[in-house]
Design a protein around this nucleic acid. Structure first.
Length: 353
DNA sequence: TCTGGGGTCCTAGGACCC
DNA sequence: TCTGGGGTCCTAGGACCC
């Protein structure tokens, strides 16, 4: 008996933040809209931009000052997370009810396993269209859906037709579909790995798929094998709800390097308070505290300490952060960034047992 | 080219236990 | 005391993602 082929959807809302803003303010439609940091302050990033803004060369992730240079006439808006989260929750509810298994990736993206809901690709396409229709009717927003045999293929395919796109890649087409694409399209291949692969002559996913996996392992360590499988389109990872929170952190970058001990201490206190609020909200108890310093000349250092008990108390967090700072902070170098992180959680759920 | 901030996962050595 | 092997936890750093 052969395993039933999986049918996986990747759903991505089209330029989500600006689309919501345009819906709320119809007068913005057809104009370049940029959601992100305040360009007057010159610091920070473009979070999302409309297609009209993209025509000026603006991209998400770009520094806001660069966006300002490219398109000073654009409508610049701050990020209204509360609103976007509310809209996102509604959309995710629509998607969830069509899926056997559901996994939200971020505020605007999700994976669905719909294997038992459809009997072939024609039905899968019809389902995708129906979902698009429901989302549009309820929220007046469009999305792009890609259908694939795995999360890997569906996610990569979602770049192909945007906005309001629908892309299908069948299992037998997966290898050929991936082959001509550059390796960085594979998730977890960034700058570093791309360079390493380039140095042994690998530029496309097809090159990777035809390479000797032994050599890949020598160059990249144990996950060379994993990459090789990905290049062949093989990905058996399941669609599933996100696992529990592993860490909570806050950090802040100063305008200039600081050496004033008290100033840094105060910043750490404030960050600890913010982290603590999150801990209470999520009902978590932590064991490990990490502080992070970015120095002007030394790069970034992290220092952590693990308690032999769990706690959720602000005073414990502040005390540990302060201790780590006392022991490790280099007084001979100016600090550009400080951060506080807690991890090693025990949830209250588990504690009941 | 390092612009910010929030995460996840992996590696590797050392401590410690059996 | 170091002879092996295996496992887990702690700490630090790095790559990568959105």
């Amino acid at each position: 008996m052969s395993e039933k082929r999986r049918i996986i959807f990747h759903v991505a809302m089209d330029h989500f933040f600006t689309a919501v803003e345009e819906r709320e303010h119809p007068q913005y439609k057809g104009k370049p809209v940029i959601v992100g940091a305040d360009p007057k302050k010159g610091k920070g990033f473009v979070s999302t931009c409309s297609y009209e803004a993209r025509n000026f060369g603006v991209r998400s992730g770009m520094s806001i000052s660069k966006a300002w240079k490219l398109c000073p006439k654009a409508i610049y808006l701050p990020v209204n997370y509360e609103l976007y989260t509310k809209v996102s929750d509604e959309i995710m509810d629509i998607l969830r009810k069509h899926a056997d298994k559901f996994e939200q990736l971020d505020i605007a993206e999700a994976f669905l396993d719909v294997t038992s809901k459809v009997k072939d690709h024609a039905e899968a396409e019809a389902l995708a269209r129906q979902m698009k229709r429901e989302i549009y009717e309820r929220e007046r927003l469009t999305c792009s859906i890609s259908i694939g045999p795995s999360k890997l293929v569906a996610k990569i395919a979602s770049d192909f037709k945007k906005p309001n796109g629908l892309t299908v890649v069948k299992e037998e087409e997966a290898k050929g579909f991936l082959a001509p694409l550059p390796v960085h399209k594979l998730i977890s291949i960034g700058r570093e790995t791309e360079q390493k692969l380039k140095s042994i002559g690998i530029k496309t996913i097809g090159h990777l798929a035809n390479y000797d996996p032994n050599v890949l392992t020598q160059v990249l360590g144990s996950w060379g094998t994993l990459l090789y499988l990905m290049a062949l389109g093989i990905d058996s990872s399941e669609v599933g709800e996100k696992s529990q929170t592993k860490s909570i952190s806050r950090e802040i970058t100063f305008e200039k390097g600081m050496s004033n001990f008290e100033f840094i201490q105060k910043a750490l206190d404030r960050l600890s308070e913010e982290v603590h609020r999150d801990i209470l909200r999520q009902n978590l108890f932590f064991k490990t505290v990490t502080v992070r310093f970015r120095y002007e000349n030394l790069g970034t250092r992290t220092h952590s300490k693990t308690l032999f008990y769990v706690t959720n108390r602000l005073q414990d967090l502040k005390k540990m952060a302060k201790e780590l700072m006392r022991v490790y902070l280099r007084s001979d170098n100016k600090v550009r960034l400080v951060g506080v992180k807690v991890s090693n959680f025990i949830s209250t759920e588990k504690q009941k047992h």
